[in-house]
């Protein structure tokens, strides 16, 4: 039985058998890889990661036309949907007082800690190689969980300029990391 169905508490009571089948197939096909990916961005918080995967699968089911896409595009889209859900969750969490210590301490002591530190160094080096304009928009948006308009206000530049610098900055970063054999 697909685990997502049990968790949704009858949300799909009215859905027909075909819809249930499709969501089960989605979960089977993408659930595992997605969970492994999402866990990395929830700091190994498994419960949070499982919630994110469920929400992602539900959104995919609601946008079933996109499931006609090539598998590589479906995967890219699912990763992006999941990331957005994680970021929204992180923004909500940081808006209220911390209930527990952030998990970063544990992250540094897990067995792959040195491997992680190494790839973090490679990424940090690549980021430093970018122009100041490109680097600062990446830092002021993604790395601080800020939206385009929030970053635009802080940087004192129009939102369109933030988007455009992000585009060229991210492409440049990808080229740098690909040259170093890190990016796919």
């Amino acid at each position: 039985m697909c685990p997502v169905l049990g968790h949704l508490d009858g949300r799909f009571e009215s859905a027909d058998a075909e819809a249930e089948h499709r969501i089960a197939v989605l979960y089977q096909e993408f659930g595992g890889p997605l969970l492994r990916h999402v866990r990395k961005s929830t700091g190994n918080d498994l419960q949070w990661a499982e919630d994110v995967v469920q929400e992602t699968i539900v959104r995919a089911w609601r946008n079933s036309a996109r499931l006609q896409w090539e598998p590589s595009l479906i995967w890219a889209w699912l990763l992006t949907v999941a990331r957005r859900i994680v970021i929204d969750g992180r923004r909500r969490r940081s808006a209220r007082p911390q209930e527990v210590e952030p998990p970063e301490v544990d992250m540094m002591s897990v067995p792959d800690g040195s491997e992680r530190a190494l790839s973090a160094m490679v990424v940090a080096d690549a980021l430093r190689s970018l122009s100041e304009e490109h680097r600062e928009v990446i830092e002021q948006t993604y790395l601080r969980d800020r939206t385009i308009s929030e970053a635009a206000e802080i940087l004192g530049i129009p939102p369109g300029t933030v988007k455009s610098r992000l585009y060229y900055g991210i492409r440049a970063l990808r080229e740098l990391l690909r040259d170093k054999g890190v990016a796919g």
């Binding site: 995967w75 970063e104 790839s119 973090a120 993604y142 991210i170 970063l173 990016a183």
Partner: peptide, 13 residues
């Protein structure tokens, strides 16, 4: 699609 995962390495570090 997978580039943000690489940037996440910086958060953990």
């Amino acid at each position: 699609a997978e580039l943000p995962d690489q940037l996440d390495e910086l958060r953990h570090a």
